[in-house]
Amino acid sequence: MILLTITDNPKDRTKFCILYEKYRYLLHKVAMDVLHDRYLAEDAVQSAFIKIADNIAKVGEIDSRQTKSYLIVIAKNAAIDISRKRKRQMKREINADEIGEEKLPAVCMESDLENGVLDILKNLPEKYRDVFLLKYSAEMENSEIAKVCGIKEATVRQRIARGKVLIENEIRNLEASRHETDRGD
């Protein structure tokens, strides 16, 4: 175990090993509750145990309620950090094929058009953009989006439909201006 090399003190190593064996499944469950992905939850648990190893002196009695709470907070924060990082990455990585190809006009996605589509997504009104990104980037269900945003599920469906219409119209405008440029008008 690589984490054992973080601490030099044999007592701290023993304490860390006991903590790891006793609490790893609990911390994994806490991370799963936040991330809903087994592999990401494993990453969060590893990150949490690195923080625990760095702060092993702050850990009191292994079986105490305070220790358990401290470890849970570290694991939950590690999972939240991973979730935030993923959301930021997804916002940057959204592509036109994640929008719902059946509703979009068929276009050749050249770099200037791709940039135009990304601009369209960035410039959507916030209430549509947020729901749209959660639906198609984070692949969340409408019920999950409703809980996260504090709105009704019907409102989520309505915003997705209206967002698609806005995107379709903007893509048509983008294509039209592109064709005018190509013709030299």
Rank of each mutant, 00 (worst) to 15 (best):
I2A: 11
T5N: 14
D8I: 05
N9M: 08
R13G: 14
C17L: 15
C17P: 00
K22R: 15
K22A: 06
L27H: 07
K29A: 10
D37R: 09
D37H: 13
R38P: 03
L40E: 10
E42V: 09
D43V: 06
A44F: 04
Q46Y: 13
S47F: 08
K51H: 11
K51W: 01
K58R: 11
K58Y: 07
E61W: 05
D63K: 13
S64Y: 06
S69P: 00
Y70D: 07
V73A: 14
A75L: 08
A75W: 10
A75V: 09
D81F: 00
D81C: 00
S83R: 14
R84V: 09
K87P: 00
R88D: 13
M90A: 12
K91T: 07
N95T: 15
D97L: 08
E101W: 06
E102L: 14
K103G: 11
L104F: 08
A106G: 00
A106V: 14
V107C: 13
C108Q: 11
M109G: 01
M109L: 15
D112W: 05
L113M: 15
G116Q: 01
G116P: 04
G116K: 04
K122I: 03
P125Y: 09
E126Q: 08
K127M: 07
Y128I: 03
Y128C: 02
D130R: 11
D130A: 09
V131R: 03
F132R: 05
F132S: 06
L133V: 13
L134P: 03
L134Q: 04
L134N: 08
K135G: 01
A138S: 09
E141Y: 12
S143M: 06
S143C: 08
E144I: 03
E144S: 09
K147N: 09
V148N: 06
C149D: 01
I151H: 03
K152L: 04
V156W: 06
R157A: 05
Q158E: 12
I160W: 07
A161E: 12
A161G: 02
A161H: 10
A161N: 11
R162V: 08
G163R: 04
K164F: 02
V165Y: 01
L166E: 05
E170P: 02
R172I: 10
R178P: 02
H179A: 12
T181F: 10
D182N: 08
G184E: 11
D185L: 13
